[in-house]
Design a protein around this nucleic acid. Structure first.
Lengths: 201, 201, 201, 201
DNA sequence: GATGAATGAGTTTTCATTCAT
DNA sequence: CATGAATGAAAACTCATTCAT
């Protein structure tokens, strides 16, 4: 009986072993030879599991986004107020911990690929991610409204908050000496001052 | 004695003749040979006016941003209400005219370079552009407050609006079937409902 | 599994097939494309076995020097008198056989590289070669002294002979109508008239 | 009346102003543009006075050798003993003064050109230089013999000394940590111990 | 005479991908 | 299944030389 290799699993394993590579050397400088060496396999073997170089990059970036998803869902768990929850939502761009910066820089490399190639798959995947997070944010806002923390119109700002976050991400990636934390705090606090229900009698 | 050429002017002329090239073939695929051919000069001549390939790209992109600046300043002239002015501010991402799409796609190529290279000059230039537009937006908002159209806190949303715009730009560049116009209208209208002075006695 | 090639051996094989190239076209005009074609392999393959162009040249020259070493050790075997042995030592510069001229011209190309580049590795290698031949000459002279053919002070001329030889090599390479054979014979005979033990009772 | 330019003089002036260039950047890296800039003239003008790049190099090197000639003739003036005179003859390779090192390195660049190109003019010029110095050395030795300082056979070592010197020059250029001074002193002293007339008794 | 703008041939090097073993 | 040897297209960049003004 021949050894049956779980193609999907091995694909992930290879990508997993290369997760640091993508922001260490950058997507542009990444070579298939490096991937093979890092994964401890032959160059030809890489092509057994991936269509081409872009496919490899795609899978590696998937890991970073996946982990970011998980990290987000984990961090949101025990937070009380809606305002705080939203700040957790912005964690991706505000948190400068080494762990998070890895994912952030992974995403940066991803963006540079999506922008330079006309790759429909990547754009589509980007949609999926966007929708996932939008759904999470929507849930947070809806809960805030239901708990009477936020006024009803708040729901209209879900998309705006999503885009604002993307804009801050972009600014952090492309500007020098940019204070992402301050940018988020200013905006969210000012917006929530308008959206939170005033309980003064 | 041979004619003395205005190096700065010729540099601009070359870049000008290649302004379409950058989004037609993309920054990644652009070759110096193409630039030379398009400008109708020799490959070596290109290097008389530009340091290297990045320098060429930089100059071409400059043109697109320059033209966008001008187009913005022109379009804002005869607009009355602040809300409308802000929509003109978002023209870059909302306007799907061929002319504007050229600049938009030029900027897209620019972003992909800034993201993939660690090019300080480009990042710095990005800062400058950001500040220019922020200044314009600030002026618009301040006028709105002075004319008693907007409440005083509106000034706190300048940065937020800037980032929102960048986020929409990014979304338009990376997502499929994204309606930038709707995104802008929803956010701006909702926000301005909160910021505009209510005159209903 | 693909065949595993002996990288070191193939490196030598490629260089070996190009041994004539180096003095046929000269080090300066030698192109990697030529090397690839001569070796019957692809240009990219050349770079699988060599760091860069200099590395190729280095290996080819190595072959010429290696062969010269061997040829010298072989030729010295059955020679009787010390004076004659020294003449064999000068064989490199005196022998105008096609075979030797190849090595001589190979060495000439080598020198031009060492002189124009500040390449430490090549200089170091040059040292090694120098020491090898100096050791051989020293052995010859010492044997001459031990066999009572030469006076004791002869040992002091080892370095001088080495440099003389290098000087003749240099002259042969850079002067027109230079008679290396005569130059060597004159010097060695005159010197040995002073160094040989006079046995005339 | 048109300005009559002394072509020969201007040629020398240009070369003179570039004399440092040749060992500062090396013959290989030297560009015509640099020459023009250093000489304060246009690139086209360079070609009014020189055939091609090699011609420029030739003229610059001429200066170094010329100056070395002069420096040698000057330094030999007030020297007494023949042995000492010979040491002055070796000044070129023994003297590590900045001034002399300039000429030495100029000559090194020259050699690399002569070795890599099959340039008959340069080789011929090399012959001329060789003969000039040989003549000087011959004169020194002959005087030594006439003054009864040296034995008659000494005249037979003129060529040998010439080649020895070239060998030391070559060694100094191509080996690491080579002590040219010691090499010369050892050889000359040992040789002269055999060539000087013994006045004991 | 003087000049410097224009040129393009020529070279090195990289690397994704293929495929024989 | 696994592999790594082989490949060649592609691209940036240099610079001696020419020649119109």
């Amino acid at each position: 009986m021949p050894k049956i290799v779980d193609k999907v699993q091995k694909r992930k394993d290879i990508a997993l072993s290369c997760q640091d590579l993508i922001y260490d050397v950058g997507v542009k400088k990444l070579t298939v030879a490096q991937v093979a060496k890092t994964a401890g396999i032959g160059k030809g073997t890489v092509y057994e599991y991936f269509e081409n170089k872009d496919d490899i990059i795609f899978e590696i970036i998937n890991i970073h986004i996946q982990k970011h998803h998980e990290s987000f869902l984990e961090s949101i768990k025990n937070v009380e107020t809606t305002r705080e929850k939203v700040f957790h939502f912005f964690k991706f761009v505000m948190d400068d911990s080494e762990e998070n910066l890895k994912h952030f820089n992974g995403y940066k490399e991803y963006l540079s690929v999506v922008l330079s190639d006309e790759n429909y798959d990547m754009k589509f995947f980007n949609n999926t991610c966007h929708l996932f997070f939008k759904e999470q944010l929507k849930k947070i806002i809806e809960e805030g409204i239901n708990k009477n923390e936020l006024i009803d119109q708040s729901i209209n700002f879900v998309d705006g908050l999503m885009h604002f976050e993307k804009g801050v991400v972009c600014a952090k990636m492309t500007q020098v000496e940019f204070d992402a934390k301050k940018a988020c705090e200013d905006f969210v606090n000012n917006l929530f001052d308008n959206l939170e229900v005033k309980n003064d009698k």
